[in-house]
Design a protein around this nucleic acid. Sequence first.
DNA 1: GTCTATAAGATGATAGAC
DNA 2: GTCTATCATCTTATAGAC
Lengths: 238, 238
Amino acid sequence: MSIQSEAIGRRKSRVGRPAKAEAAARTKETRDAILDVAEEIFSKHGFHGVTTREVARRAHVNTALIHYYFNTKQELFDAVFLRRAEVINAQRIQAMDDYESKLGDKVTVEGAIEAFLHPVLHVLQTGGPHWRNYFALVGLVNSSTAWGGEVMTRYFDPVIHRLIDLLQRAMPKATREDLYWSYNFLSGSLTLSLAETGRIDRLSDGVCKSTDIPAFEPRMIAYAAAGFRRVCEGKKPL
Amino acid sequence: MSIQSEAIGRRKSRVGRPAKAEAAARTKETRDAILDVAEEIFSKHGFHGVTTREVARRAHVNTALIHYYFNTKQELFDAVFLRRAEVINAQRIQAMDDYESKLGDKVTVEGAIEAFLHPVLHVLQTGGPHWRNYFALVGLVNSSTAWGGEVMTRYFDPVIHRLIDLLQRAMPKATREDLYWSYNFLSGSLTLSLAETGRIDRLSDGVCKSTDIPAFEPRMIAYAAAGFRRVCEGKKPL
DNA sequence: GTCTATAAGATGATAGAC
DNA sequence: GTCTATCATCTTATAGAC
C-alpha cells in the first residue's frame, strides 16, 4: 500500500503526495470491498450463480466499476481465489518447514498433518467471516468437476507436495500410490468441513456444529493420522 | 414401465393398447434422454451453469419439451437428483440389513463401512457413465453451502443413520458426537472421490487414477475404519 | 406430444460524460 | 475513478398451431 503510493507520488511534487496516498487508499478499499462481497456470494452459489450486478449492489459500488477494476467476471473470480491463497500457502509452508527443522528424522504422521492443517484452522477461528467464506469457496471448487482438477492444482499443489514429502519421511516404506490416495481422503474430509454446509448440524440434530473448530481439529488429526498409518504402513493386507 | 402402460391401456379397448404402450415407451425414452443429459451437465457446471436450452439441444429435443415434462428448471434438477437416489438408497439399506442379519453382535467397523460403500462403488464400476455423472453431481451438491445442507439431508439421511446405528453396535462405547464427526470425514473422502475431478490424477502425476475403483475401495475402507476406531474408541486422548 | 414464435426480463460488457 | 446509458445477447417460460 505505502509502496504503491510512493511510486505514484514520485511523479509529482511532494505537496501532491498526501492526496495521492489518500486516493490510493480509497482505491484499495473499493477493490477489497468488491473482492469481499464476490468471495461471499461465489462461495454460496458458485461462479455461475453470481452476477456482477449483484456483487456491485452488495458492495455499494457502481456496476461499471467491477469491470474497471477486474475487467471480466472470470478475472474477478480468479482474483478472489488468489488473494488469500498466497497468504495461507506461505503460512502452511512455513509451519511445515518449522516442524521439520525442529523434529528432523523424528517427524510423526500426526505432527505433519497438524502442521499442514493448523494454519488453516487457526485463521478460520480467528480471521473473521471473510476467511470462512474463502474456505467455503475452496471446498466448493475442490468438488467441482469443471474447476476442481485444474484450479486446485494451480493454486495448492506446492503445499500438498510439501506435506507428502513430510509424510514420506515419517513413513519411509510408504508407496507414493498409498500416500496420494490417503491424501485424497484427507483432502475430502477437510474441504467438506471447510464448506460449512450445515450438513453435520442437521444430521446430528445439533450434537455437532460445523463451525466448532475446537471439536473438529483434534478429531480430524486423529482420524486422518490413523487412516494414513493403516493404509501406508498397515501390517495386514488391504 | 409395463405397470404404467397397462394403467393407461385400461381406459381404451384392447386394440388401442399396443399404440398406447408404444407412445408411453417413447414418452419414457424422451424423459430419460432429458434426465441423462441434464445429469451430465449439472454434474459438471452446477445448477446455475446449465441452461434449459443446452439440455434440450444435447438431448435432441425441442426446448419447450423440457417444460412440458418437468415444468421448471428447478423441478428438472430435483428429478435428476431423486431418480437414482431412490435406487441406490434401497440397495444400501438392503446391504446393511443383510450384513447385520448375518453378523448380529459380531458386526465390525470395516464390515459396516463396506456394506455402506460397496453398492455405490459397484454401480460406479458396472453401471456405465450415467451413474458416474450422478455421483459427481452428489459430490458437488454435498460441498455446496447453498444446496449441501438441505438437499443431502432430504435425500440421504436414512441411509446415513442406518450406518451410524451399525457402527454404534460395532463400537458400543462410542459417543454420538464422535460418530457424527467421523462420519463427516468419511462423507468428505467419499464424495470428493465420487466427484472425479481428476485432481488426484494431476497431483500424483498419473500414479493414481480417480476412476480406479479397485485401487480406491480397499484403501477407502481401511482408511475410514482406522479413523473411526481411533476417534471413537481411542485409548489415548485426542 | 411436439413444434414455432415470442414474451418479459436479466446478463456481461462498453462508450463516453464528468 | 465514478457515473449514466445502453448494446447485444441470452435466459426461463408460455401461448397456441398442428
